[in-house]
């Protein structure tokens, strides 16, 4: 997992509610092994025209947001399918943090597995950040201090689950974390299989 500490850069204002993971990455792009090239396919149905050429009007294709590290989004961002490819595609396009009022739950969990930071802020704050976007505007997301700094210098505090925050700051491996409890797992298994063998 890629550790996350702090990131600064332009923030793409994409405030539509209910952006689903099918829209973030079409399933047809996830049929090959590996994650290479997924960044090119992020938001493919919006980013490219039917003939395959880039749509210059789509926000992620326009300066200063092409390759921007932060995405500002509307409610329920990442809802729908559990495909982790949505996170890989966003990261492949250069996004390291998504700021939205709420997230699809599985997407939210997937973010932490890969080093993409989802920041939950009230819609009002997201809107203020979006309104401040323009040619040279940047936003900073600082996980150590748990604060977002807007283009006008406004500091907005956010909260992250402490366990997830620690794992993200250090880039910890999930399997390793679970296996620290190997003895408890073995004891649980023995007891559960005795009590309810059909389970």
């Amino acid at each position: 997992m890629t550790p996350f500490t702090t990131v600064t850069g332009p923030a793409i204002p994409w405030l539509k509610p209910n952006t689903d993971t099918d829209l973030i990455i079409p399933i047809q792009d996830l049929l090959r092994p590996g994650r290479e090239g997924l960044g090119e396919r992020c938001f493919a149905r919006l980013r490219y025209r039917p003939d395959g050429s880039e749509d210059p009007d789509f926000i992620c294709n326009r300066p200063p947001w092409r390759g921007a590290p932060i995405l500002l989004a509307g409610e329920n961002f990442g809802c729908g399918s559990s495909r982790e490819g949505a996170v890989w595609a966003l990261m492949g396009m250069g996004v390291r943090a998504v700021i939205a009022p709420s997230f699809g739950d599985i997407f939210f969990a997937n973010c932490f597995q890969n080093g993409l930071l989802p920041v939950a802020l009230p819609m009002e704050a997201v809107r203020r950040l979006a309104e401040g976007q323009g040619a040279n505007a940047t936003v900073t997301v600082d996980l150590e201090r748990e604060v977002v700094i807007g283009p006008d210098g406004e500091a907005i505090a956010f909260r992250t689950d402490p366990l997830r925050r620690a794992a993200l700051l250090e880039g910890l491996d999930g399997t390793g974390l679970i296996l620290r409890h190997a003895d408890a797992i073995a004891a649980f298994q023995a007891r559960a299989e005795g009590e309810r063998p059909w389970q």
Binding site: E84, N110, G174, L179
Partner: peptide, 11 residues
């Protein structure tokens, strides 16, 4: 997701 799935399979 895929990462949690691999962790679940391993543990």
């Amino acid at each position: 997701g895929a990462s949690e799935l691999a962790q679940a399979l391993a543990t």
